[in-house]
Structures are given as C-alpha cells and as structure tokens.
Design a protein around this nucleic acid. Structure first.
Ligand SMILES: [Mn+2]
Ligand SMILES: [Mn+2]
Ligand SMILES: [Mn+2]
Ligand SMILES: [Mn+2]
Lengths: 221, 221
DNA sequence: CAATAAATTTAGGTGTGTCTAAAAATATTG
DNA sequence: CAATATTTTTAGACACACCTAAATTTATTG
C-alpha cells in the first residue's frame, strides 16, 4: 500500500543511494528525522511490498519498482516547488515543506498536466534536475562546489547541496541566487573563506562551509 | 491536533448544518462513508479540541473555532478545484477527489497566494461560492432548481446540487455546463421530464432527477 | 583476538482512525 | 403506553507509524 510515509522512505533511500551504494539504517533515520527502530520496522514493510531489498544488519537497496515510486515522488516534489516559486511567487527558502506534502497527491495524469502547465521545467528552484515521466533526466551541466573555484575565476551559481531553510535564507541575506554570476576575488589561507565580487562591483566574503554547499559552473579560468 | 480526518469531519458537519440545525451521527457517517461507531469516536475527539459541541444521542454543532477550520478547508478545496480546471484544464467531473487531498495542505499564506494567482474567483467549477480569507462570501445570485422552471422560460445554468462524478459526467453527455443558456420548451406531465432547447436549436429531454440537481438563474418568464 | 563500541533488531507500548458486535438510549407505532 | 425499530454509544480489535529500552549482531581497537 502506497502511503505518504512509505513514499517518503523510498525517496530518502533514492537520495542516499546517490552517495553510498547501500543505504544504512542510521543514514535513513537521520534524513527522515526518525529513530532507527522505526526505520527497521518500515524497511520490513517496504521489503514485503517488494520495493526494497533488505538484508538484516547490512542495509537496503531499492528494487526497480521501488525506484520507480521514488522517482515519481521526487518528480512531483520538484514540479510543485517550481509551481510555488514561479506561479505563487514564494521564495526558494520556504517551498520545501509544502512540496513535501504536495508530492503525495495525485498520480501520473495530474503530474503530467502540472508539468505541461509549468512548461516542462528541467530544474527545480534549487537547481536540482526534474525527472521526466519515465524517471529520466539529462543534466548537461558540469557543476563543482564553489569552494573549489580558484581566485580569478568567474562562476555561475547553478545549485545548492543543502536545501535547508537556514542555508537558503543565509544565501538570501548574502544576495546569492541561482543564475547569478560572481567573480572569485580571493581565498583566505587561514579558513578558506572566499571573497566574491557581484555584478554591481560590491564584494563580500562567504565561509568555506557556505562555498561547499554552493554548486557553480565555471565560466573562465 | 488538526489532522486530515478531523478537517474532513468539520467540513462535513459544516455542510450538513446548512440543512438541519443539528447534525445527526448517521448523516455524518453517510457523508464521510464511514461507520456510526467511528463517528462517535471522532466526535469525542473534536469535542475535546473544542471544535464541536456534542450532546450524547442528540447531535453535533460546530463551535466558532470549528466553523473557522471548516470554512478554511472548504475555501482551500474550492480554490484548488478552480486551479485544476482553469490552469490544468481538467473537467469539472474529475477534480473533486484531488481537491479533497489538496485542501489539507498549507495554511493561510499559501491559500491566499493561490487565491490571488487564480484572480480571487467567487465560485468554484461547480458553481459553489468560495469563502474569502475571513470565511465570508456574498452570493447575489437567486438560484432555483431547474425542475421548478416553467415551460417557455429561459434559464442560465449556474450550479449543481450534486457534485458526484456520475452526475457531472451525465451533464457532460447532455452537453450541459455552467454558463449555458437554455430554453425550457415543455414539461411532460407523466414524469416531469423537461424538454430543453440549446442555443444551436437542438432539443433534448432531461429527467426530473437531473433537473432537480441543476441550479439555474431565471432569465425570462 | 578478546573486549569494547556502534549499529541494528526485537519487544512492548502509544496515538490516530477505522471496524464489528453488543449494549444502551431514543423514536416510532400498534 | 408498551412493544418494536432505529439510532447512538461502548467494548474490544486491528493496521499504520511512531517511540523507548533491551537484546543482538557487527565493527573497531587495544
Ligand atoms: Mn513528503
Ligand atoms: Mn528542491
Ligand atoms: Mn479532504
Ligand atoms: Mn466543488
């Protein structure tokens, strides 16, 4: 039975599979803000449904069917985020929680109509690619963490590695947004802070931690 | 705690209060497609929350706070229905179930933005008035059941008393939709069937039951 | 490699919302 | 107005998704 909680678990497993090939109980508990015992219990249910392969004490992996559900949920999440930002004019820092609920509504038909209404967007407001109806996407971008950009280079802000409200609000405060082009002026040896220059000539420094969570496209140098 | 189920109950009570002043357990069970024992159980919870006044064996009534939640939920339901029809081009016969889920998402801020995005619609796709942010609406229309229209009169379709999928699909089949202007040509004495004439001159007959569920504005006669 | 630490699972509970079957209260009617 | 029918409530269960605390298993390390 496809419940909200189960879709959330499958989506979380999908994201964690991106890094490690096998997903640990603990990582899931952290991501879902729940307790390991709850995760174990749910993994049994997901395995019963045939959506994950679970080996006791070893970890989980999505099955083909499980991945399909996870991708469909992720697609809905990101499309609704685009809706909230593009159509209802919300900031990228507040849309995640609503999308977390909206992603569980309706099926393929509703999703495809929403997709068409939004003009088949390729990326969500955080720069994350939106899977198509088949769960596929192509991301021709070659993104790196801003922390890896050398002084003198020009970078284009294209995504974030942390979509949390606090981080995004910090970016708002720093006047950093997707599509912005910045010049990396200097790197402080001591703490790896980066001095950046905005198009209007203003300069400001971002911390190493902030730079690590910023995905950019290298324009020059 | 404001859960999906509790919002559904409050909304159901609100609608049933429209007819009888005190709502019976049975009526609620019917409307919510649940069992009387479940209703009793839920009414206790709603009473504990202070959202209804419940006298054992007598019936329920919304409190001010309960009515507020019910109206907010109804507002969201109808706004999302407008979205689905106006923006995603769904038919009025299929949007109810999705709205039944969407109505539980987000709060005032999201709702007000949606309202603005839709251009502050006064009525939903079924001709039902949409409460404003304060739960109020003004319905200047003077609607009657089509079954009460006399032969020779001209009527404007403005609403339905039954928003069920089957009835709405039947109206689709009959080419009856909101805003349509029809001439009542004749009433059959035997079964109160109504012969109607469409703007293109075509004529067709609708049953008394169908006419009873159609709300119209009298244009002439 | 045995002792310790960390991760995972099991056992036993809780709250929400539902159900069926039985008891209690209210309505209806001969 | 007493007998019967209907409505409502209570009692006892169940599924879902959580939790804490206590095993159990796996990993680490002296
Ligand atoms: Mn979610
Ligand atoms: Mn996103
Ligand atoms: Mn609902
Ligand atoms: Mn409606």
């Amino acid at each position: 039975m496809q419940t909200i909680s189960r879709e959330n678990y499958l989506k979380a497993i999908l994201k964690l599979e991106g890094r490690a090939d096998i997903v640990s109980n603990q990582a899931l508990a952290d991501k879902l803000e729940t307790k390991p015992a709850s995760v174990t219990s749910m993994l049994h249910k997901l395995a019963d449904e045939g959506w994950v392969k679970h080996e006791a004490y070893k970890g989980v992996q999505l099955t083909g069917e499980g991945k399909g559900i996870a991708l469909a949920t992720l697609r809905k999440h990101r499309l609704w985020e685009v809706f909230l930002v593009e159509k209802l004019n919300f900031g990228w820092d507040v849309v995640h929680q609503w999308a977390e609920e909206l992603e569980h509504i309706g099926g393929e038909e509703l999703t495809n109509r929403l997709d068409a209404f939004l003009g088949h967007p390729a990326f969500d407001p955080h720069g994350d690619p939106i899977p198509n109806a088949l769960g596929k996407w192509k991301d021709g971008r070659n993104l790196v963490q801003a922390s890896q950009a050398e002084p003198g280079s020009v970078v284009l802000i294209k995504g974030v590695l942390n979509s949390g409200e606090e981080f995004l609000q910090h970016l708002n405060t720093m006047h950093i947004q997707l599509g912005l082009q910045l010049i990396v002026v200097q790197r402080y040896e001591f703490d790896d802070g980066l001095v950046l220059e905005w198009p209007d000539g203003r300069q400001a420094t971002i911390s190493h931690e902030t730079a690590q969570n910023l995905l950019v496209e290298m324009k020059q140098n």
